[in-house]
């Protein structure tokens, strides 16, 4: 080494070693990261869970003023046959004053059918209000007993800690009296 004449040879040698060192490290690092991904992704929903992602419901037995709860993707879905007074109450609200501003018209496909995921947007409890004997909160809709969120007759958050309105699942009317959720 001491007898080599070119300094450039020395410099090349050093930078080549640096390159090999960094490239090897990067190769190993990226390879390890890729190998870890299956171990992380295995915790995501499996194929059979994803396959259960739609539910059909017959609406004909539900009388005006009644609600039923169906299960979609292991979550409760509230289906309410609303009264004229409830629709009127939901539409007489000044939308701009709401925490999560949404007009009632945006939340339903047919006025009398309110269909939404029955999971409080705060921390995931199931709000009360599906039965006439249960509390309906201060706005005549649903009330979450866990941390006191009040939802109105359109399922919109009006009071309490929840940040958003009850979610509307994707659904379509197959006939006038049956729907497919998901």
């Amino acid at each position: 080494m001491s007898t080599t004449t070119s300094d450039g040879g020395h410099g090349d040698d050093a930078s080549r070693r640096d390159f090999l060192y960094i490239a090897t490290g990067a190769f190993g690092g990226i390879g390890t990261a890729l190998a870890v991904w299956p171990l992380i992704d295995q915790m995501n929903p499996s194929s059979d869970v994803l396959a259960l992602a739609s539910t059909e419901v017959d609406l004909s037995p539900i009388e005006e003023g009644q609600s039923i709860t169906v299960v979609w993707r292991s979550k409760p879905v509230f289906i309410r046959h609303r009264t004229a007074a409830e629709i009127e109450a939901a539409r007489s609200v000044n939308v701009q004053e709401l925490r999560h501003p949404q007009a009632d018209e945006e939340r339903v496909q047919q006025n009398k059918w309110l269909i939404m995921v029955g999971v409080c947007t705060h921390l995931g409890c199931v709000p009360l209000g599906q039965k006439s004997t249960e509390p309906h909160g201060e706005f005549g809709g649903w009330f979450c007993p866990c941390h006191g969120s009040h939802y109105d007759t359109s399922g919109r958050i009006r009071k309490g800690p929840a940040p958003e309105n009850l979610a509307i699942p994707p659904y379509e009317f197959l006939t006038d009296t049956s729907i497919k959720i998901g």
Partner: peptide, 9 residues
């Protein structure tokens, strides 16, 4: 949350 649950609930 979906990842933690391994499902939708």
């Amino acid at each position: 949350v979906t990842w933690l649950w391994g499902g939708f609930a």
